[in-house]
Nucleic acid binder design. Structure first.
Lengths: 197, 197
DNA sequence: CCTACCGATCGGTAGG
DNA sequence: CCTACCGATCGGTAGG
């Protein structure tokens, strides 16, 4: 009875996977529904049967990213503090092993700076959530004296997110000249009074 | 006698100015020669008379950016060291006052991460030059004991560039929640043994 | 610099 | 899900 629905769900997942691959190579604006459809093995009109517009497909791609991140978070119920920072380093290591994901993220984030972009609100939320998460960790570390007393948790949180983003772009452009994880680790360590690892 | 040539040069400048405005709003791939031409007050075929292809126009835009940066550098012959760092803060202040330039830079940099993009080589060079410039300053500071002894100049240079780039993207997306210049200043100060200002 | 045009491609719709 | 199609737009060319 649910066979039809199951098949539809699987087809949807195939399309989203194809879309991620295409966005990665051409960005959102630079990609076409026809190219995504071809990789998913259907026509572009067939794709529109599942996702009624180009924007709806983008929304589905971003939803999957969030779902995957949530999965990883759940496996890794790190409390705010040192463990959370180590977890963030782990996420960076995961990213370095999956350049395609980083590529997609960097390109979409840049396109979406303009308020009219269909993913703009997504990134506004994304930045806010990321900042709050990191801030909570720095505040916890401040409470236990593990954060250097001259470090402002608010500034440190903002800076950490920005540093991660900037390193990603520079690493994608010149991979051989950027040690993404090492640089992050060095930065974090410089804020702490205890060894990070 | 040079009247014709002068007029052509001026027209070229008009077109480049229009291109910057359009790239800023739509990115390079998202913009059209027709839109650029319309803002410059000519037809798109007229534009092609001056710039033989879309890529040639992009090259001219990047050349102008380099020329303007070089002008600012020349006015401000800062030697490597503290003065140079203050100069970089000044550049960040200039950028915050000119969001359009930052927008263009962030969008192009993200599009150009892929090796096939017409501006890819430009950004490879841009990152390398930027890193070397900042590295020279940190090394000079290390020699005079103004850099904290536990700071590696190489890592600090890479990190500074990445931080600036990441802050720009986050600031463009959520301007009210990011203090770009203040964050840069705080970061730099944390590396030094002497007051930055 | 323009008019006029080309082939290609785009997102989306109709109708089944 | 497909075939067939739409109007719009693209970069670039011809020819003046």
């Amino acid at each position: 009875m649910t066979g039809g629905y199951l098949k539809g769900r699987l087809r949807r997942e195939d399309i989203i996977t194809a879309a991620i691959a295409v966005y990665r190579e051409a960005g959102y604006h630079g990609s076409s529904l026809r190219e995504v459809a071809k990789r998913a093995g259907i026509t572009h009109a067939g794709l529109i049967y599942y996702f009624p517009s180009k924007e709806a497909l983008l929304a589905a791609v971003l939803e999957r990213r969030d779902a995957e991140d949530a999965d990883r978070e759940q496996l890794n119920v790190a409390a705010p503090g040192l463990d959370m920072l180590r977890h963030l380093i782990g996420l960076a290591e995961y990213n370095v092993a999956h350049p395609g994901i980083v590529d997609l993220y960097v390109r979409l984030a840049a396109e979406a700076v303009s308020p009219g972009h269909p993913a703009h609100e997504y990134f506004v939320r994304h930045y806010r959530v990321a900042r709050e998460e990191v801030l909570a960790s720095f505040q916890a570390l401040a409470d236990t004296g593990e954060l250097r007393p001259d470090v402002d948790p608010q500034v440190a949180a903002l800076t950490f997110i920005a540093l991660e983003d900037g390193l990603q772009a520079q690493w994608l452009t010149t991979p051989d000249e950027v040690d993404l994880v090492g640089s992050l680790r060095t930065y974090l360590q410089s804020l702490l009074t205890v060894p990070l690892s």
